[in-house]
Design a protein around this nucleic acid. Structure first.
Length: 279
DNA sequence: AAAGTATGCAACCGCGGCAAC
DNA sequence: TGTTGCCGCGGTTGCATACTT
């Protein structure tokens, strides 16, 4: 509801961007910023929809984009972050300066995913997954033509529930309470302060019963962005031990301890999730 | 050398979230 | 309180190139 049409396609150009278009877009954004993506193409004189402009800028034209191959460190970070965050490419990208979610997504699907052991994927598959965004169509392609594409070949090699999706959900089920606590500890300084505050409220409300303890609010992930990478890595690599991981010095230390305890006692140390493969 | 296949990347599509009205 | 409009995200697709037969 209330969603604007993807873009009024009438008269708008699609497909690859030309250098001229790039130039125009960059010049316009450098001059006027991109306060309103929808209005930007018109203002800049581009026959593109706002979405396309935004995508082009974010994924390609932004001055702080780091091009080129991913370093081993970056790849390992992606793998670890993916273990923790699942297919939250934007969240992962936020931890890798100069890298875009689209790029990371591509790298994952073309390189990193293949490194996972098949057995590992099976574990993740068995973990079962409830898709968050579109539960009813979690594993079903939204659209797909009948012709056998190469991606179809890839897809058939994968379980009906993709490993990362399962993994994502598993992580969500078992470890998010811990991460959430950590994220909350960091004050939710993701820049989306309104979202952060609402998250904490939501979480307090949603955890009113034992059965709901692990129903982490979707918006939690936005807070994860505010979490230093080191902390995330701590969480990822954490063995069931020291609670000082959260280094409590805030007023919510008690809550931290509580959620950590809940996590630990609830089998949250589920090694399926937190024991990362040695890369 | 040509045809077929696989791979990688850029871009598109459609949805959910959220603020403004 | 419901509706509208925009932004951002994740999944998917299209296409160029590399590789294999």
């Amino acid at each position: 509801m209330g969603r604007a049409p993807c873009c009024e396609k009438m008269g708008l150009k699609r497909g690859p961007w030309t250098p001229e278009e790039d130039k125009v877009l960059v010049a316009h954004i450098q001059s006027f910023g991109h306060g309103n993506w929808r209005a930007l193409p018109k203002q800049a004189g581009l026959l593109r929809c706002g979405k396309s402009c935004r995508l082009r800028w974010i994924n390609y034209l932004r001055p702080d984009i780091k091009r080129g191959n991913f370093s081993d460190e970056e790849e390992q970070s992606i793998i670890q972050l993916h273990q923790l965050l699942g297919n939250r490419w934007s969240a992962i990208a936020a931890r890798l300066p100069g890298r875009t979610d689209n790029e990371i997504k591509n790298v994952w699907h073309t390189h990193l995913k293949k490194r996972l052991e098949p057995s590992e994927q099976e574990q993740h598959e068995q973990a079962g997954a409830a898709k968050k965004r579109k539960p009813a169509s979690a594993s079903a392609p939204r659209k797909r033509d009948s012709k056998a594409r190469k991606t179809d070949v890839k897809a058939t090699a994968e379980p009906p529930v993709s490993p990362e999706r399962s993994l994502s959900s598993t992580v969500t089920d078992s470890s998010t309470s811990m991460v959430s606590a950590a994220a909350a500890e960091h004050g939710g300084s993701s820049g989306n302060s309104a979202g952060s505050s609402s998250v904490s409220v939501k979480e307090e409300q949603s955890f009113t019963s034992e059965s709901e303890e692990f129903q982490i609010d979707e918006s939690f992930w936005s807070e994860t962005l505010s979490m230093p990478l080191d902390d995330i890595m701590d969480v990822v690599s954490m063995e069931p031990q020291p609670q000082e991981t959260f280094g409590g010095n805030s007023s919510s230390e008690g809550d931290m301890d509580y959620w950590l305890r809940v996590f630990m006692e609830g089998g949250g140390g589920d090694q399926d999730v937190l024991d990362l493969p040695q890369i």
